[in-house]
Design a binder for these strands. Structure first.
Lengths: 84, 84
DNA sequence: TTTGGTAATTACCTTATGGTAATAATTTAT
DNA sequence: ATAAATTATTACCATAAGGTAATTACCAAA
């Protein structure tokens, strides 16, 4: 089936952001409201960000918008037709 | 622990959008690349949208932005400090 | 160099999201 | 009214995200 619809993190961008703002993974994790293990795994590509991660980032970092930090495959799912 | 960090769907908004565009749950599901059961459960508040759902919407409905369809609690997680 | 502290990584488990497929409800033709 | 589509709902299961807590790596001070 359609295997291409997940959200990814632009790890390089996020890593740079953390560095520039002198934030450790632990600090960042606390700020966005997830465990530091979650942040670590996402940064290392072992997990994709879930809705909790995404919400935490958008909620607490108003200087970051979705497209800056996140990405997704741009393939269309099977039956997609343009709307309206 | 911090139980407040998930993403919700503005079901009324989404329902109206589907109605206005004459899209059934099945059609919408196909367009965003998830099962129709997923759409149904999200619309009925029985599930929150996961990253797949969110990605599907943002990807395929460029006329919708994140804040229009989704929301999240605006409480700050425990150790949150404003950055820079 | 060892002690203490911070940061990063990972094994193990829990839980929530997503798919399948069957069922129910609703609508449209005939 | 009833058969045939279409649409919506849900039980059941698979899997991926998230938490806990232990372990490892790193680094500074004495």
């Amino acid at each position: 089936m359609n295997k291409s619809a997940d959200i990814f993190v632009r790890t390089k961008v996020l890593r740079k952001y953390l560095k520039d703002n002198r934030l450790s993974e632990v600090q960042f994790a606390e700020m966005i409201g997830v465990a530091h293990s979650t942040v670590n795994r996402v940064l290392n590509g072992k997990r994709n960000p879930g809705s909790k991660f995404i919400a935490g980032v958008l909620k607490n970092f108003s200087d970051l918008n979705f497209e800056q930090i996140f990405s997704y495959n741009n393939e269309l799912p099977k039956g997609k037709k343009e709307v309206s």
